[in-house]
Design a protein around this nucleic acid. Structure first.
Lengths: 200, 200
DNA sequence: TATTTTATCTAACAACTGTTAGGTTGTCAA
DNA sequence: TTGACAACCTAACAGTTGTTAGATAAAATA
């Protein structure tokens, strides 16, 4: 992809995720990329097309992350209960919730879901459905291995995931994603996970 | 308060909570209220002042709801574990999360928090801090009464509240708040609460 | 009755919006 | 050398934006 096109996408995401799609003008984007407004229309059909390209990119990355998770689930390195899970957490946290691009995209989806039905579906899919589905599989696998007794994996997934979602909302999706915010999230999330795995 | 002023606020909230503050024009609001643009400026200093009045109204109502909760905590009607809690849930669910005004306001706060620091603080206060603080008090009270053993009320509050927050996000804050959405939320939330109180 | 106040209006402003037509370069294959 | 194409530009368009000045009419007050 063209270098300028990449820069337009990066600048757009930066602004969209902070101000929301409609509050950002083509000229705002151009000020960052240092090109004239008309040049944007060489790379994109219109403003909406920038957003759509970002959505496609996000879906690609998110799909890849999910595949990565599925793979690491099928071949567990350390079969100890919580360590088995450590690797999975790291992928989901570091390469998804705290990844710069994904994080901004999720913030963008969160803002735009209210007046864009396609975006709402994407947000629900990648923030609730997919993670919960995957967690269910994890707990089913753990039950099969005999590590846990409770076999209601859907309920377990909900109990496990919802605090993480809340922590993400509080520390990762509001404001700028600083190292400090990330650390607060990690501390809270891993504390929760440790307690959770002791209890089940 | 003036009837027209009320209508402006109602129409503004309706639009703001769906499209976001910046995507709504004064003329959009006027189309609903059926007045001319200039008339808005008789009631409000500027567009921002409409948002600020909404924020103040929300804080008043939310504060009132919290007081109501505190009161119902200090005089429990039915001392049975989960029934004791039933009344508190009803207030929080029906008069806060699912109340028409509050629900729209929370959606508005959720959208606007990313580029407005005052709004971010409000959202965090009324969606995380206050509810979690209150839940902590509830579990402390239950522990004092001898109904539960676990005395880490902060941790309990998090475990209790985070699924409810997730359900609210999924079913109450996205799209229009229909009776169907409310019912899905209620089913999920009460199911969670019942299981939760059996476990502790 | 005369005067002030309240609530609305018409009409316009300057700035900003997404978008387009058409011109200007530099690069590369024929 | 010529022509094609990519990547940018200038300049403008028609519409929308928040906001204001000043007029109008009804109601309240003196």
């Amino acid at each position: 992809m063209n270098e300028t096109k990449k820069e337009i996408l990066t600048a757009s995401l930066e602004l969209f995720s902070k101000k929301g799609y409609s509050a950002v003008s083509i000229r705002d984007i151009c000020k960052i990329v240092q090109i004239k407004e008309s040049s944007v229309y060489y790379h994109f059909k219109n403003k909406q097309a920038i957003l759509e390209e970002l959505l496609i990119q996000f879906e690609d990355i998110a799909t890849g992350m999910m595949q990565q998770l599925e793979e690491s689930l099928s071949k567990p390195v350390n079969p100890e209960k919580s360590n088995f899970y450590k690797g999975i957490c790291d992928i989901f946290f570091e390469e998804y919730l705290m990844d710069d691009f994904c994080n901004k995209m999720m913030r963008l989806l969160l803002i735009e879901q209210f007046h864009n039905d396609e975006v709402r579906k994407l947000y629900d899919l990648w923030m609730f459905e997919k993670p919960l589905d995957f967690q269910s599989k994890v707990f089913s696998a753990l039950a099969d291995m005999g590590y846990i007794k409770d076999r209601d994996s859907g309920y377990l997934a909900m109990k496990y995931y919802s605090p993480i979602y809340c922590f993400a909302q509080r520390w990762l999706f509001s404001g700028t994603l600083t190292e400090e915010c990330k650390e607060i999230f990690r501390v809270n999330a891993y504390q929760h996970i440790e307690k959770f795995f002791k209890e089940i």
